[in-house]
Design a protein around this nucleic acid. Structure first.
Length: 461
RNA sequence: GUGGUUGUAGCUCAGCUGGUUAGAGCGCUUGAUUGUGGUUCAAGAGGUCGCCGGUUCGAAACCGGUCUUCCACCCCA
């Protein structure tokens, strides 16, 4: 007896309609990547474990899918390791490869391995699946696509400006108006920590600050105190909790607050420059706002930190993020290569576009024309017509059997085919074909020898 | 990884404190309609109630385990 098939937790099948929608997002995104001068690369779905392990913190290591060695992998484990049952030391002996966890680390590896053949600055984009042994939730999967664009080998802040424009271009093209691009700078966060004398508590400080809109100012202060930051120090940065007004007002507040910190002042300066430049160039539909609570990816970001929030009317968190990392390739021995990059959260963008009904109607039109099958002789004529339609680039098909006409029509309906062609005995005798427009129900007759009339009309309408 | 939640027809879901043969809508098949779909009407097919075990005279329902779904935390796209 056949068992019920299933797929692993956190993975998905994609139906034709879903693939069409996903490809639409891919295509729009790729088109803009390329107009901004980015080039595509691809890397293997699995890497050597040592390339990935230790790059994402302890939490990250736990979430990396490890691949068992081939052959009799357990036989090679020494008895001491085996009997201690320590997962970490055992894992390194039975697994030498692991599935790609993100696209950034493999990219860093790629840059180091190919740096002699790369022309810097190198702008690459990459759209490939990654895997995480996380517990799935809505919009979070164990296999999902990441879509990254990075520039390495360019220190200029113009790169940050360009990425903001890129976000704006893509989301505008997708019809997703009103996204909020939030920007912060790690140097500002470090400066604040310095000012309140909690320099070595930077991570704890920012993790708490990041929760401001979730647990409120009082909650944040409480958490900071439990982490060992004094109440007096917290009072000094009180203005942070109610930072509001225009971006330039925020800049002035920060400038004042951080005047004693060299690093913090540098961060404010960078932020101000990016903001002013973007303002001078203008954005099509996105907003740019300063958000000092933004603290994602703090482990490797060194300058700008970016995050894109979905429009306010949908309940979806961030749909993209990125930042500047000054020393990404350092971990692989290549110093002084600066990088900036952004990422698009494709699955979440999909959910947002779906919710707002922003996918074009034409996407589910997998067939433009269906010829009905009235029998052997009629089908032959229909197939000839189908062939010439296909040669003109029209998505056309012939129903493969002379099933009941009712059934064939129903199939056309379910497939959302806008035009159905009928060639029966009558039409065959008269050397013609009848085109039925499914929405209106109108029928029109054309000459079988001259299908161009119909083709032209199809292309115009 | 911690705590909770969900699973019944192809799909969306009812099914009372455990009690005969498990239901509805949509979809599907057939017919009304032998060359015209969407609307309508009639009939029909389709379920070892996620899986394994336990309690019971009796389990879709109660208990345990497991898988899956979703949610919060952690973290993150």
């Amino acid at each position: 007896m056949a068992q019920k098939p299933s797929i692993p937790k956190g993975t998905r099948d994609f139906t034709p309609a879903e693939v069409a929608k996903r490809n639409y997002i891919f295509d729009v995104t790729k088109r803009h990547f390329e107009t901004f001068g980015f080039q595509p690369i691809e890397t293997p779905s699995f890497e050597n474990s040592e390339t990935l392990m230790g790059k994402y913190g302890d939490e990250g290591d736990r979430l990396i899918f490890k691949i068992l060695n081939s052959g009799d992998y357990l036989n090679k484990v020494d008895d001491a390791t085996y009997t201690t049952k320590n997962s970490t030391s055992l894992t390194s002996k039975i697994s030498e490869k692991a599935l790609r966890y993100d696209l950034t680390v493999p990219f860093a590896r790629y840059v180091v391995m190919h740096h002699n053949e790369i022309d810097f600055p190198f702008k690459r984009y990459q759209i490939q699946p990654v895997w995480r042994a996380d517990r799935p939730q809505k919009g979070r999967f164990r296999e999902f696509y990441q879509c990254d664009a990075d520039v390495v080998g360019a220190d200029s802040l113009l790169q940050e400006v360009e990425f903001i424009q890129l976000y704006d271009a893509v989301f505008t093209d997708l019809g997703l108006d009103g996204v909020d691009i939030k920007i912060n700078n790690r140097k500002i966060l470090a400066g604040i920590a310095e000012v309140i004398g909690a320099k070595d508590l930077l991570i704890d400080f920012t993790v708490a600050l990041d929760k401001l809109d979730k647990i409120g100012a009082e909650g944040v202060k409480k958490e900071m105190v439990t982490k060992g930051i004094s109440a007096d120090s917290i009072a000094e940065v009180e203005p942070l909790f109610s930072l509001s007004g225009s971006n330039s007002a925020k800049v002035s507040t920060l400038k004042e607050l951080l005047s004693d910190s060299e690093e913090g002042s540098k961060g404010v300066e960078e932020l101000a420059y990016i903001f002013e430049t973007v303002a001078a160039l203008g954005l099509q539909s996105a907003k740019l706002s300063i958000d000092v609570t933004l603290a994602r990816g703090l482990n490797y970001y060194t300058g700008a930190i970016l995050e894109v929030a979905a429009p306010k009317n949908v309940d979806m968190g961030s749909i993209g993020g990125g930042g500047r990392y000054d020393d990404l390739t350092g971990i692989f021995g290549l110093k002084d290569v600066s990088g900036v990059g952004i990422s698009f959260g494709l699955d979440r963008i999909y959910l947002v576009l779906e919710e707002l009904g922003l996918f074009p109607d034409t996407l589910d039109q997998s067939l433009q024309v269906l010829c009905l099958n009235f029998g052997v002789k009629e089908a032959m004529a229909a197939l000839k017509l189908t062939t010439s339609l296909r040669k003109s680039g029209i998505k056309a098909d012939l129903y493969p059997s002379d099933a009941k006409i009712q059934k064939q029509f129903k199939y056309a309906n379910n497939r959302n085919v806008p035009y159905v062609i009928l060639i029966g005995e009558k039409e065959l005798k008269g050397n013609s074909f009848v085109v039925k427009h499914m929405d209106s129900g109108d029928q029109k007759s054309y000459d079988l020898k001259n299908p161009d009339d119909f083709i032209q009309q199809l292309k115009n309408g």
